[in-house]
Write a protein that binds this DNA or RNA. Structure first.
Length: 595
RNA sequence: GACCCCGUAGCUCAGUUGGAUAGAGCAUCAGAUUCCUAAUCUGAGGGCCGCGCGUUCGAAUCGCGCCGGGGUCACCA
């Protein structure tokens, strides 16, 4: 009945303000409701697809709505006829100076300039809160991201997913969700046994033994040396010659803890902090996978069956059919049913993972996973399992897996060579040391995550307009610099004479006023990169306005002989700076005061 | 072979709950510097939105089928 658009009320609980797009969306809704009362629109018609947006071409006016086109079919009339009725109602609004019908049935609205000046004041009043939304209605969203195996420092392969996940989490928070940032520690599989053995090797090394080259099947990186030294200090030679079963659990626990400390410090360099670090081993210990299996078996979603040979290529030499507990993922479009336990009775990754998702679902209204694209093949089975379990247990939960594509590292147009074999790869710490946190974060958000991207060290540090990070930061620095200069000359931002502002300034306000709706549409689409592109546009508009002053001193922010105009322009500059700051804040990028 | 992602200007990319004449940056060409930061800006040219069919008032956007590029196809994690 009510506009979906309005479920997302823009009212800020801290102030009386409603942002401009929200206010006029409400105005349009009011007109539609009136037409419903008059019988022009049917009582049961849905306004869900009605939008109030900026028109594509600024010459069409200030705002446009597609209401007539969306509702014509339901009203059993043609769009232009319905548009007449709607436009008539809107034209009666005092702040709407004209409502014109255009094209297939758009209604273009022109506003009294005071409406835009009012929005400018709202930006200033709401400050850091400008753009925040209550759209999420406090619903809890669990965003799981990074979840790198605790077997070494974070490297480039983890970076994009980390930034994308973190920015998405912030965006959802900004849009009114309660967000839990979660990291799943895979501390129960074979790879952490390998880690423990590798640590034991370094332990022996630290005790003076010549271990020679690191053998195949061990982690070779030097980052394990300090762990070996630490264990040697703590334990002496107690476990030097002992059989593996004597020391493995202890070494594993110690090594995982040290690796997680390393990973957390790497994440901190990126400005990333998780709320929950969930342990797979603890999940096993709590018997969660057993519970899930029991339920799935009772509902015939797990059965004992023979696993098919891998498809599309010759089966491995040692392939032999074996009976395992299989989840019926083929019922959900997967190629084959997937094992939840191995032949030795231990849980597969998938078996534990489905139980893990049920654990997350217990404390959240919605789940989002951020995964690397190399795991794309396992999306169907986990979505199937979560759907089966959550719906079957009476707690259906929206669950989305976002795949993040690979990043190709470049340096001056040439691919950067990395050798994982020797443990020689580019870590996140290396990268941040070279180009800085802000550059890494912003650059990772200048492409949609599901498209592959290149990251060129030479280009991203370039301080020019070709580099979006600097372009946006420069716009903010420019605002700050102007305010500093103005203060020295005895001017200050003032809302007293906003009516002095002309068409060019209002164009800038129009752009800034879009921030709240960009936030909502980005949050709805779960796409933080839209904020980055928006900020680039806003920065471009600010630079363009600035440069009007090159030719015409009367168009500068500071006009010495006109204090009223200067006060109003500074007020505008301050507000634009605020919006840029708010947007960068969502992305986790610092807004610098000078470059 | 199957599944997932991508295909938009010479290049790098935005733009999908279906909307008006498809947008930026780079590169190319023509301009702006006694100026609050020119680390910038103004303007011009440049497009069968990979191809075909369909859905409808309307498709870059949705569906089906192709073509091209990348990824994945363990009892691994």
């Amino acid at each position: 009945m009510h506009l979906q658009y309005f479920a997302a009320t823009r009212e800020n609980p801290m102030t009386e303000h409603k942002t401009l797009y929200a206010a006029y969306a409400a105005t349009v809704e009011k007109a539609l409701l009136a037409l419903q009362t008059e019988g022009v629109l049917p009582a049961d018609c849905s306004f869900a697809n009605v939008a109030v947006e900026p028109p594509r071409d600024a010459s069409h006016g200030d705002l446009a709505t597609n209401a007539a086109m969306v509702l014509a079919k339901q009203a059993k009339t043609n769009p232009r006829a319905l548009a007449e009725s709607i436009a008539e109602k809107l034209d009666a609004e005092p702040s709407i100076t004209s409502a014109e019908i255009a094209g297939p049935g758009f209604i273009n609205l022109r506003l009294d300039p005071a409406a835009w000046l009012g929005e400018l004041a709202a930006i200033s009043d709401m400050g850091e809160g400008y753009g925040r939304s209550t759209m999420g209605e406090g619903r809890t969203v669990n965003v799981e991201y990074v979840s790198a195996n605790p077997t070494g420092p974070m490297h480039m392969g983890h970076c994009r997913g980390a930034v994308v996940g973190d920015a998405l989490a912030s965006l959802l928070e900004f849009a009114g969700h309660k967000v839990t940032r979660e990291y799943y520690i895979n501390d129960a599989g074979g790879q952490v046994d390998t880690l423990a053995r590798s640590a034991h090797l370094r332990y022996r090394e630290a005790l003076g033994e010549d271990i020679g080259d690191i053998p195949e099947g061990y982690y070779p990186g030097d980052y394990l040396k300090p762990i070996g030294e630490y264990l040697a200090r703590e334990l002496g030679d107690k476990y030097k010659e002992e059989p593996e079963e004597e020391w493995l659990p202890y070494f594993r626990a110690e090594a995982v803890e040290q690796m997680m400390a390393l990973i957390k410090s790497d994440l901190a360099l990126l400005g990333i902090h998780h709320d929950i670090f969930a342990s797979e081993a603890a999940l096993h210990a709590a018997g969660k996978p057993d519970e899930a299996e029991a339920w799935l078996r009772a509902h015939d979603l797990v059965y004992d069956g023979v696993l098919e040979a891998p498809k599309g290529k010759a089966p491995p030499d040692d392939w032999e059919p074996v009976e395992l507990p299989l989840f019926r993922s083929t019922k959900f479009g997967d190629d084959q049913d997937r094992p939840i336990r191995k032949s030795d009775g231990k849980w597969t990754y998938f078996g534990a993972d489905l139980a893990y998702h049920m654990q997350k679902a217990a404390d959240a209204d919605e789940l989002i996973d951020i995964w690397g694209a190399d795991h794309a093949g396992t999306v169907k089975r986990i979505k199937a399992a979560v759907a089966a379990l959550s719906e079957g247990q009476g707690n259906p939960i929206p669950f989305d897996v976002k795949l993040v594509q690979m990043v190709q590292l470049m340096r001056g147009g040439e691919p950067v060579k990395m050798s994982k074999r020797s443990g020689n790869f580019i870590t996140i710490a290396d990268m941040i040391e070279e180009v800085g946190k802000d550059v890494v974060r912003f650059t990772m958000l200048t492409r949609k995550p599901e498209a592959q991207m290149e990251f060129d060290f030479a280009k991203v540090v370039e301080a020019s307009k070709d580099n979006p990070v600097f372009y946006v930061q420069y716009a903010h620095a420019r605002v700050k610099s102007t305010l500093r200069k103005a203060a020295e000359a005895g001017f200050a931002a003032s809302a007293e004479d906003l009516a002095q502002l002309g068409e060019e300034e209002i164009a800038l306000i129009r752009n800034a006023a879009q921030f709240p709706r960009i936030v909502e549409s980005a949050a709805k689409a779960r796409e933080a990169h839209r904020i980055a592109f928006y900020l680039y546009d806003l920065a471009a508009e600010l630079h363009a306005f600035w440069n009007l002053g090159n030719d015409n001193p009367q168009k500068r922010f500071i006009v010495e002989q006109d204090a009223a105009l200067t006060g109003a322009r500074l007020f505008l500059a301050d507000a634009i700076g605020q919006v840029i700051r708010n947007g960068l804040g969502v992305l986790g990028v610092d807004a610098v005061d000078s470059l």
